[in-house]
Design a protein around this nucleic acid. Structure first.
Lengths: 205, 205
DNA sequence: TGTATCCGATACGTCGATGCATCGGACGAA
DNA sequence: TTCGTCCGATGCATCGACGTATCGGATACA
Protein backbone atom coordinates (compact mmCIF):
# COMPACT_ATOMS: atom_id res chain seq x y z
CA UNK A 1 0.00 0.00 0.00
CA UNK A 2 1.58 3.30 -1.09
CA UNK A 3 2.53 5.74 1.61
CA UNK A 4 -0.23 8.03 2.74
CA UNK A 5 -3.00 5.79 1.38
CA UNK A 6 -5.63 4.97 3.95
CA UNK A 7 -7.23 1.56 4.12
CA UNK A 8 -10.67 2.67 3.06
CA UNK A 9 -9.39 3.63 -0.37
CA UNK A 10 -8.96 0.09 -1.76
CA UNK A 11 -12.40 -0.76 -0.40
CA UNK A 12 -14.15 2.02 -2.27
CA UNK A 13 -12.10 1.26 -5.34
CA UNK A 14 -13.17 -2.38 -5.24
CA UNK A 15 -16.79 -1.36 -4.65
CA UNK A 16 -16.69 0.91 -7.67
CA UNK A 17 -15.18 -1.83 -9.82
CA UNK A 18 -17.76 -4.38 -8.76
CA UNK A 19 -20.60 -1.93 -9.29
CA UNK A 20 -19.18 -1.03 -12.68
CA UNK A 21 -19.06 -4.68 -13.74
CA UNK A 22 -22.69 -5.18 -12.81
CA UNK A 23 -23.87 -1.97 -14.38
CA UNK A 24 -21.89 -2.51 -17.58
CA UNK A 25 -23.34 -6.01 -17.82
CA UNK A 26 -26.83 -4.66 -17.29
CA UNK A 27 -26.76 -1.67 -19.60
CA UNK A 28 -23.55 -1.73 -21.59
CA UNK A 29 -20.57 0.57 -21.35
CA UNK A 30 -21.81 3.62 -23.21
CA UNK A 31 -25.31 3.42 -21.80
CA UNK A 32 -24.14 3.55 -18.19
CA UNK A 33 -23.32 6.89 -16.65
CA UNK A 34 -20.63 7.43 -14.07
CA UNK A 35 -23.39 8.47 -11.73
CA UNK A 36 -25.13 5.07 -12.06
CA UNK A 37 -21.95 3.25 -11.11
CA UNK A 38 -21.44 5.45 -8.07
CA UNK A 39 -25.04 5.07 -7.00
CA UNK A 40 -24.87 1.29 -7.11
CA UNK A 41 -21.60 1.32 -5.20
CA UNK A 42 -23.02 3.66 -2.58
CA UNK A 43 -20.74 6.60 -3.34
CA UNK A 44 -20.91 9.87 -5.22
CA UNK A 45 -19.06 11.08 -8.27
CA UNK A 46 -16.52 12.71 -6.01
CA UNK A 47 -15.32 9.25 -4.99
CA UNK A 48 -15.16 8.18 -8.60
CA UNK A 49 -12.97 11.04 -9.79
CA UNK A 50 -10.78 10.58 -6.77
CA UNK A 51 -10.07 6.98 -7.87
CA UNK A 52 -10.30 7.06 -11.66
CA UNK A 53 -9.79 9.75 -14.21
CA UNK A 54 -12.45 8.49 -16.62
CA UNK A 55 -14.91 5.71 -17.33
CA UNK A 56 -12.44 4.29 -19.85
CA UNK A 57 -9.72 3.96 -17.26
CA UNK A 58 -12.06 2.15 -14.91
CA UNK A 59 -13.05 -0.17 -17.72
CA UNK A 60 -9.43 -1.04 -18.44
CA UNK A 61 -8.80 -1.73 -14.77
CA UNK A 62 -11.82 -4.02 -14.79
CA UNK A 63 -10.59 -5.86 -17.84
CA UNK A 64 -7.11 -6.35 -16.42
CA UNK A 65 -8.54 -7.78 -13.23
CA UNK A 66 -10.70 -10.14 -15.25
CA UNK A 67 -7.77 -11.23 -17.42
CA UNK A 68 -5.78 -12.33 -14.43
CA UNK A 69 -8.70 -14.24 -13.02
CA UNK A 70 -9.41 -16.11 -16.25
CA UNK A 71 -5.85 -17.23 -16.81
CA UNK A 72 -5.63 -18.34 -13.19
CA UNK A 73 -8.84 -20.32 -13.56
CA UNK A 74 -7.61 -22.07 -16.67
CA UNK A 75 -4.39 -23.01 -14.95
CA UNK A 76 -6.35 -24.45 -12.04
CA UNK A 77 -8.43 -26.45 -14.48
CA UNK A 78 -5.30 -27.94 -15.96
CA UNK A 79 -4.21 -29.12 -12.57
CA UNK A 80 -7.62 -30.52 -11.69
CA UNK A 81 -7.72 -32.47 -14.92
CA UNK A 82 -4.19 -33.65 -14.40
CA UNK A 83 -5.12 -35.06 -11.02
CA UNK A 84 -8.21 -36.95 -12.03
CA UNK A 85 -9.21 -39.01 -15.01
CA UNK A 86 -7.42 -39.43 -18.26
CA UNK A 87 -10.47 -39.96 -20.44
CA UNK A 88 -11.36 -37.68 -23.31
CA UNK A 89 -14.78 -37.44 -21.71
CA UNK A 90 -13.31 -35.80 -18.63
CA UNK A 91 -11.50 -33.23 -20.72
CA UNK A 92 -14.64 -32.42 -22.67
CA UNK A 93 -16.61 -31.93 -19.48
CA UNK A 94 -14.10 -29.44 -18.17
CA UNK A 95 -14.08 -27.51 -21.43
CA UNK A 96 -17.88 -27.47 -21.53
CA UNK A 97 -18.30 -26.00 -18.09
CA UNK A 98 -19.89 -22.55 -17.93
CA UNK A 99 -20.31 -20.80 -14.60
CA UNK A 100 -23.35 -18.56 -14.08
CA UNK A 101 -21.11 -15.56 -13.35
CA UNK A 102 -19.66 -15.93 -16.82
CA UNK A 103 -22.62 -14.13 -18.31
CA UNK A 104 -21.67 -10.74 -16.92
CA UNK A 105 -18.10 -11.17 -18.04
CA UNK A 106 -19.23 -12.29 -21.45
CA UNK A 107 -21.22 -9.12 -21.95
CA UNK A 108 -18.38 -6.91 -20.80
CA UNK A 109 -15.54 -8.61 -22.66
CA UNK A 110 -17.52 -8.90 -25.87
CA UNK A 111 -18.17 -5.20 -25.75
CA UNK A 112 -14.47 -4.71 -25.20
CA UNK A 113 -13.74 -6.90 -28.21
CA UNK A 114 -15.91 -4.68 -30.37
CA UNK A 115 -14.03 -1.70 -29.03
CA UNK A 116 -10.72 -3.41 -29.76
CA UNK A 117 -11.69 -4.02 -33.39
CA UNK A 118 -12.04 -0.25 -33.76
CA UNK A 119 -9.07 0.79 -31.63
CA UNK A 120 -5.50 -0.36 -32.26
CA UNK A 121 -4.38 0.18 -28.69
CA UNK A 122 -7.25 -1.80 -27.20
CA UNK A 123 -6.62 -4.47 -29.84
CA UNK A 124 -3.07 -4.84 -28.60
CA UNK A 125 -4.18 -5.18 -24.98
CA UNK A 126 -6.77 -7.77 -25.94
CA UNK A 127 -4.33 -9.68 -28.12
CA UNK A 128 -1.87 -9.94 -25.25
CA UNK A 129 -4.52 -11.36 -22.98
CA UNK A 130 -5.83 -13.79 -25.59
CA UNK A 131 -2.33 -15.02 -26.35
CA UNK A 132 -1.78 -15.94 -22.70
CA UNK A 133 -5.13 -17.66 -22.62
CA UNK A 134 -4.38 -19.70 -25.73
CA UNK A 135 -0.99 -20.67 -24.37
CA UNK A 136 -2.63 -22.12 -21.27
CA UNK A 137 -5.24 -23.94 -23.31
CA UNK A 138 -2.65 -25.32 -25.69
CA UNK A 139 -0.54 -26.49 -22.76
CA UNK A 140 -3.55 -28.21 -21.23
CA UNK A 141 -4.50 -29.93 -24.46
CA UNK A 142 -1.09 -31.23 -25.41
CA UNK A 143 -0.38 -32.41 -21.89
CA UNK A 144 -3.67 -34.25 -21.61
CA UNK A 145 -3.40 -35.82 -25.02
CA UNK A 146 0.15 -36.86 -24.38
CA UNK A 147 -0.92 -38.70 -21.26
CA UNK A 148 -3.64 -40.49 -23.20
CA UNK A 149 -1.11 -41.61 -25.77
CA UNK A 150 -2.25 -39.37 -28.59
CA UNK A 151 -0.70 -36.45 -30.40
CA UNK A 152 -2.10 -33.39 -32.14
CA UNK A 153 -2.06 -33.40 -35.91
CA UNK A 154 -2.71 -29.63 -36.12
CA UNK A 155 -1.18 -26.48 -34.66
CA UNK A 156 -2.04 -26.31 -30.96
CA UNK A 157 -2.37 -22.52 -30.90
CA UNK A 158 -4.76 -22.53 -33.80
CA UNK A 159 -6.78 -25.31 -32.24
CA UNK A 160 -7.01 -23.16 -29.12
CA UNK A 161 -8.35 -20.38 -31.33
CA UNK A 162 -10.99 -22.77 -32.64
CA UNK A 163 -12.03 -23.80 -29.14
CA UNK A 164 -12.31 -20.18 -28.07
CA UNK A 165 -14.34 -19.37 -31.17
CA UNK A 166 -16.73 -22.22 -30.44
CA UNK A 167 -17.11 -21.15 -26.83
CA UNK A 168 -17.64 -17.47 -27.55
CA UNK A 169 -19.87 -18.06 -30.54
CA UNK A 170 -21.80 -20.69 -28.63
CA UNK A 171 -22.28 -18.46 -25.60
CA UNK A 172 -23.70 -15.73 -27.81
CA UNK A 173 -26.38 -18.10 -29.05
CA UNK A 174 -26.96 -19.58 -25.61
CA UNK A 175 -27.49 -16.26 -23.93
CA UNK A 176 -29.93 -15.15 -26.62
CA UNK A 177 -31.91 -18.44 -26.46
CA UNK A 178 -31.02 -20.21 -23.21
CA UNK A 179 -33.75 -22.82 -23.69
CA UNK A 180 -32.82 -23.61 -27.28
CA UNK A 181 -29.11 -23.98 -26.61
CA UNK A 182 -27.98 -24.47 -23.00
CA UNK A 183 -24.52 -23.00 -22.34
CA UNK A 184 -21.78 -25.49 -23.12
CA UNK A 185 -23.94 -27.75 -25.24
CA UNK A 186 -21.96 -27.24 -28.43
CA UNK A 187 -18.80 -28.22 -26.62
CA UNK A 188 -20.44 -31.27 -25.03
CA UNK A 189 -21.78 -32.51 -28.35
CA UNK A 190 -18.98 -31.74 -30.75
CA UNK A 191 -15.70 -31.59 -28.90
CA UNK A 192 -15.15 -35.33 -28.54
CA UNK A 193 -15.44 -36.20 -32.24
CA UNK A 194 -13.55 -33.05 -33.15
CA UNK A 195 -10.59 -33.80 -30.91
CA UNK A 196 -10.60 -37.42 -32.01
CA UNK A 197 -10.46 -36.38 -35.63
CA UNK A 198 -7.64 -33.93 -35.03
CA UNK A 199 -5.37 -36.32 -33.15
CA UNK A 200 -3.61 -39.53 -33.91
CA UNK A 201 -2.06 -42.26 -31.77
CA UNK A 202 1.45 -41.27 -30.83
CA UNK A 203 4.29 -43.35 -32.17
CA UNK A 204 5.37 -45.82 -29.58
CA UNK A 205 9.05 -46.14 -29.12
CA UNK B 1 -45.23 3.78 -52.82
CA UNK B 2 -47.94 5.04 -50.45
CA UNK B 3 -50.17 7.82 -51.72
CA UNK B 4 -48.80 11.30 -51.23
CA UNK B 5 -45.20 10.12 -50.84
CA UNK B 6 -42.77 11.88 -53.15
CA UNK B 7 -39.92 10.05 -54.77
CA UNK B 8 -37.18 11.86 -52.90
CA UNK B 9 -38.34 10.34 -49.61
CA UNK B 10 -37.06 6.80 -50.24
CA UNK B 11 -33.77 8.27 -51.39
CA UNK B 12 -33.17 10.20 -48.18
CA UNK B 13 -34.33 7.23 -46.15
CA UNK B 14 -31.82 5.00 -47.90
CA UNK B 15 -29.08 7.59 -47.45
CA UNK B 16 -29.81 7.79 -43.73
CA UNK B 17 -29.74 3.99 -43.42
CA UNK B 18 -26.44 3.68 -45.25
CA UNK B 19 -24.89 6.50 -43.23
CA UNK B 20 -26.18 4.89 -40.06
CA UNK B 21 -24.58 1.55 -40.93
CA UNK B 22 -21.22 3.20 -41.52
CA UNK B 23 -21.38 5.36 -38.43
CA UNK B 24 -22.56 2.51 -36.20
CA UNK B 25 -19.71 0.38 -37.55
CA UNK B 26 -17.25 3.15 -36.88
CA UNK B 27 -18.34 4.26 -33.42
CA UNK B 28 -20.96 1.84 -32.16
CA UNK B 29 -24.64 2.42 -31.62
CA UNK B 30 -24.65 4.31 -28.35
CA UNK B 31 -21.60 6.38 -29.20
CA UNK B 32 -23.10 7.76 -32.41
CA UNK B 33 -25.42 10.71 -32.20
CA UNK B 34 -28.37 11.23 -34.49
CA UNK B 35 -26.60 14.36 -35.64
CA UNK B 36 -23.56 12.36 -36.80
CA UNK B 37 -25.70 10.08 -38.93
CA UNK B 38 -27.44 13.03 -40.55
CA UNK B 39 -24.18 14.83 -41.17
CA UNK B 40 -22.67 11.84 -42.96
CA UNK B 41 -25.83 11.39 -45.01
CA UNK B 42 -25.86 15.08 -45.94
CA UNK B 43 -29.09 15.94 -44.14
CA UNK B 44 -30.14 17.54 -40.88
CA UNK B 45 -32.00 16.16 -37.89
CA UNK B 46 -35.21 17.46 -39.41
CA UNK B 47 -34.90 14.83 -42.13
CA UNK B 48 -34.19 12.16 -39.57
CA UNK B 49 -37.23 12.80 -37.41
CA UNK B 50 -39.34 13.01 -40.54
CA UNK B 51 -38.31 9.43 -41.43
CA UNK B 52 -37.72 7.73 -38.09
CA UNK B 53 -39.05 8.29 -34.63
CA UNK B 54 -35.86 7.26 -32.83
CA UNK B 55 -32.37 5.85 -33.27
CA UNK B 56 -33.69 2.48 -32.11
CA UNK B 57 -36.28 2.37 -34.86
CA UNK B 58 -33.66 3.14 -37.48
CA UNK B 59 -31.46 0.41 -36.05
CA UNK B 60 -34.24 -2.16 -36.33
CA UNK B 61 -34.93 -1.13 -39.91
CA UNK B 62 -31.24 -1.58 -40.64
CA UNK B 63 -31.19 -5.01 -39.05
CA UNK B 64 -34.26 -6.17 -40.95
CA UNK B 65 -32.73 -5.07 -44.23
CA UNK B 66 -29.55 -6.94 -43.36
CA UNK B 67 -31.42 -10.08 -42.36
CA UNK B 68 -33.12 -10.31 -45.72
CA UNK B 69 -29.85 -9.82 -47.52
CA UNK B 70 -28.02 -12.50 -45.56
CA UNK B 71 -30.65 -15.17 -46.05
CA UNK B 72 -30.80 -14.33 -49.75
CA UNK B 73 -27.04 -14.63 -50.01
CA UNK B 74 -27.00 -18.02 -48.32
CA UNK B 75 -29.68 -19.25 -50.65
CA UNK B 76 -27.65 -18.09 -53.63
CA UNK B 77 -24.64 -19.90 -52.24
CA UNK B 78 -26.61 -23.10 -52.05
CA UNK B 79 -27.48 -22.81 -55.70
CA UNK B 80 -23.95 -21.98 -56.72
CA UNK B 81 -22.60 -24.99 -54.90
CA UNK B 82 -25.32 -27.16 -56.34
CA UNK B 83 -24.30 -26.16 -59.83
CA UNK B 84 -20.60 -26.73 -59.52
CA UNK B 85 -18.46 -29.34 -57.88
CA UNK B 86 -19.45 -32.00 -55.48
CA UNK B 87 -16.24 -32.16 -53.50
CA UNK B 88 -16.08 -31.43 -49.81
CA UNK B 89 -13.32 -29.00 -50.65
CA UNK B 90 -15.73 -26.88 -52.71
CA UNK B 91 -18.21 -26.74 -49.85
CA UNK B 92 -15.51 -25.72 -47.38
CA UNK B 93 -14.35 -22.95 -49.67
CA UNK B 94 -17.81 -21.51 -49.87
CA UNK B 95 -18.27 -21.66 -46.11
CA UNK B 96 -14.88 -20.04 -45.55
CA UNK B 97 -15.56 -17.04 -47.75
CA UNK B 98 -15.66 -13.68 -45.97
CA UNK B 99 -16.43 -10.54 -47.97
CA UNK B 100 -14.75 -7.29 -46.93
CA UNK B 101 -18.13 -5.62 -46.37
CA UNK B 102 -18.86 -8.23 -43.73
CA UNK B 103 -16.80 -6.31 -41.20
CA UNK B 104 -19.27 -3.47 -40.84
CA UNK B 105 -22.15 -5.88 -40.51
CA UNK B 106 -20.24 -7.93 -37.98
CA UNK B 107 -19.76 -4.92 -35.75
CA UNK B 108 -23.39 -3.90 -36.01
CA UNK B 109 -24.98 -7.32 -35.59
CA UNK B 110 -22.70 -8.27 -32.72
CA UNK B 111 -23.72 -5.14 -30.90
CA UNK B 112 -27.33 -6.08 -31.60
CA UNK B 113 -26.66 -9.53 -30.17
CA UNK B 114 -25.42 -7.98 -26.95
CA UNK B 115 -28.56 -5.88 -26.87
CA UNK B 116 -30.68 -8.97 -27.48
CA UNK B 117 -29.11 -10.78 -24.54
CA UNK B 118 -30.40 -7.98 -22.33
CA UNK B 119 -33.76 -7.43 -24.01
CA UNK B 120 -36.40 -10.14 -24.47
CA UNK B 121 -38.05 -8.47 -27.43
CA UNK B 122 -34.81 -7.99 -29.32
CA UNK B 123 -33.89 -11.58 -28.45
CA UNK B 124 -37.06 -12.77 -30.14
CA UNK B 125 -36.34 -10.78 -33.28
CA UNK B 126 -32.79 -12.09 -33.42
CA UNK B 127 -33.88 -15.67 -32.76
CA UNK B 128 -36.33 -15.51 -35.67
CA UNK B 129 -33.61 -14.32 -38.00
CA UNK B 130 -31.08 -16.88 -36.78
CA UNK B 131 -33.58 -19.71 -37.16
CA UNK B 132 -34.12 -18.83 -40.82
CA UNK B 133 -30.38 -18.67 -41.33
CA UNK B 134 -29.80 -22.06 -39.74
CA UNK B 135 -32.57 -23.59 -41.78
CA UNK B 136 -30.85 -22.47 -44.98
CA UNK B 137 -27.48 -23.70 -43.80
CA UNK B 138 -28.91 -27.05 -42.73
CA UNK B 139 -30.64 -27.39 -46.07
CA UNK B 140 -27.40 -26.65 -47.87
CA UNK B 141 -25.42 -29.15 -45.83
CA UNK B 142 -27.78 -32.07 -46.04
CA UNK B 143 -28.33 -31.54 -49.75
CA UNK B 144 -24.63 -31.38 -50.48
CA UNK B 145 -23.77 -34.35 -48.35
CA UNK B 146 -26.58 -36.36 -49.83
CA UNK B 147 -25.21 -35.75 -53.32
CA UNK B 148 -21.78 -36.88 -52.21
CA UNK B 149 -23.24 -40.09 -50.84
CA UNK B 150 -22.85 -39.28 -47.17
CA UNK B 151 -25.28 -38.62 -44.36
CA UNK B 152 -25.12 -36.56 -41.18
CA UNK B 153 -24.70 -38.41 -37.93
CA UNK B 154 -25.73 -35.38 -35.85
CA UNK B 155 -28.63 -32.97 -35.75
CA UNK B 156 -28.39 -30.64 -38.74
CA UNK B 157 -29.74 -27.61 -36.90
CA UNK B 158 -27.25 -28.00 -34.11
CA UNK B 159 -24.43 -28.45 -36.59
CA UNK B 160 -25.54 -25.20 -38.19
CA UNK B 161 -25.27 -23.61 -34.76
CA UNK B 162 -21.73 -24.90 -34.48
CA UNK B 163 -20.77 -23.52 -37.89
CA UNK B 164 -22.22 -20.13 -36.99
CA UNK B 165 -20.38 -20.16 -33.69
CA UNK B 166 -17.10 -20.92 -35.42
CA UNK B 167 -17.66 -18.18 -37.96
CA UNK B 168 -18.69 -15.51 -35.46
CA UNK B 169 -16.08 -16.47 -32.92
CA UNK B 170 -13.45 -16.67 -35.60
CA UNK B 171 -14.35 -13.30 -37.07
CA UNK B 172 -14.00 -11.71 -33.66
CA UNK B 173 -10.44 -12.95 -33.42
CA UNK B 174 -9.68 -12.13 -37.05
CA UNK B 175 -10.86 -8.56 -36.78
CA UNK B 176 -8.82 -8.00 -33.63
CA UNK B 177 -5.66 -9.54 -35.13
CA UNK B 178 -6.08 -9.67 -38.92
CA UNK B 179 -2.45 -10.69 -39.47
CA UNK B 180 -2.50 -13.46 -36.89
CA UNK B 181 -5.75 -15.02 -38.09
CA UNK B 182 -6.96 -14.12 -41.59
CA UNK B 183 -10.77 -14.18 -41.83
CA UNK B 184 -12.07 -17.61 -42.73
CA UNK B 185 -8.90 -19.43 -41.75
CA UNK B 186 -10.49 -21.46 -38.97
CA UNK B 187 -13.11 -22.69 -41.42
CA UNK B 188 -10.52 -23.50 -44.08
CA UNK B 189 -8.39 -25.49 -41.66
CA UNK B 190 -10.94 -27.31 -39.56
CA UNK B 191 -14.16 -27.70 -41.48
CA UNK B 192 -13.08 -30.58 -43.68
CA UNK B 193 -11.99 -32.94 -40.88
CA UNK B 194 -14.92 -31.81 -38.78
CA UNK B 195 -17.53 -32.58 -41.44
CA UNK B 196 -15.82 -35.83 -42.27
CA UNK B 197 -15.94 -36.89 -38.65
CA UNK B 198 -19.60 -35.97 -38.30
CA UNK B 199 -20.83 -37.84 -41.37
CA UNK B 200 -20.90 -41.41 -42.48
CA UNK B 201 -21.36 -43.09 -45.86
CA UNK B 202 -25.05 -43.38 -46.61
CA UNK B 203 -26.52 -46.86 -46.78
CA UNK B 204 -26.78 -47.93 -50.37
CA UNK B 205 -30.04 -49.54 -51.35
C1' DT C 1 -47.89 27.16 -65.20
C1' DG C 2 -50.30 27.34 -60.85
C1' DT C 3 -51.30 25.37 -56.50
C1' DA C 4 -51.85 22.18 -52.75
C1' DT C 5 -49.19 19.03 -50.34
C1' DC C 6 -45.09 16.94 -48.83
C1' DC C 7 -40.56 17.09 -46.88
C1' DG C 8 -36.49 18.58 -44.97
C1' DA C 9 -34.07 22.90 -42.73
C1' DT C 10 -33.80 26.00 -38.94
C1' DA C 11 -34.18 27.70 -34.35
C1' DC C 12 -35.27 27.04 -29.68
C1' DG C 13 -36.08 25.11 -25.05
C1' DT C 14 -34.93 21.20 -22.11
C1' DC C 15 -32.38 17.84 -19.80
C1' DG C 16 -28.93 14.78 -18.29
C1' DA C 17 -24.07 13.93 -17.92
C1' DT C 18 -19.62 15.71 -17.09
C1' DG C 19 -15.53 17.65 -14.64
C1' DC C 20 -13.85 20.73 -11.29
C1' DA C 21 -13.25 23.50 -7.12
C1' DT C 22 -14.12 23.49 -2.58
C1' DC C 23 -15.46 21.78 1.89
C1' DG C 24 -15.88 18.89 5.99
C1' DG C 25 -15.34 14.55 8.08
C1' DA C 26 -12.35 10.27 8.57
C1' DC C 27 -8.09 8.27 9.31
C1' DG C 28 -3.44 7.55 11.15
C1' DA C 29 0.68 8.98 13.72
C1' DA C 30 2.36 11.05 17.82
C1' DT D 1 -6.56 13.22 22.40
C1' DT D 2 -4.70 16.15 18.86
C1' DC D 3 -3.18 17.52 14.52
C1' DG D 4 -1.96 17.05 9.73
C1' DT D 5 -3.20 14.57 5.79
C1' DC D 6 -6.25 11.92 2.95
C1' DC D 7 -10.59 11.09 0.81
C1' DG D 8 -15.11 11.40 -0.55
C1' DA D 9 -19.39 14.75 -0.59
C1' DT D 10 -21.45 18.85 -2.38
C1' DG D 11 -22.49 22.66 -5.38
C1' DC D 12 -21.74 24.79 -9.71
C1' DA D 13 -20.85 25.89 -14.54
C1' DT D 14 -20.65 23.88 -19.03
C1' DC D 15 -21.77 21.27 -22.90
C1' DG D 16 -23.69 18.19 -26.07
C1' DA D 17 -27.71 15.67 -27.53
C1' DC D 18 -32.52 15.51 -27.92
C1' DG D 19 -37.28 16.52 -29.59
C1' DT D 20 -40.46 19.85 -31.39
C1' DA D 21 -42.64 23.74 -33.62
C1' DT D 22 -42.39 26.33 -37.47
C1' DC D 23 -40.83 27.85 -41.94
C1' DG D 24 -39.58 27.77 -46.86
C1' DG D 25 -38.50 25.22 -50.86
C1' DA D 26 -39.43 21.00 -53.66
C1' DT D 27 -42.63 17.95 -55.77
C1' DA D 28 -46.69 16.12 -58.00
C1' DC D 29 -50.76 16.91 -60.42
C1' DA D 30 -54.26 19.53 -62.90
Amino acid sequence: MPKGVTKRRPRTRAALLQAALETFAENGFHATSIEQICERAGYTRGAFYSNFSSKEELFLALFDEHSERIVRRITELIDSVADTELSLQALVEVLSDVEPAERDWYLVTTEFTLHAIRDRQAAWVLAQHDARLRAEIARCLTAHLHRTGRTLSVDADELARLLIAIREGGLAQSYVEPEALPPGQLERNFLAPLLTALTAPAEQR
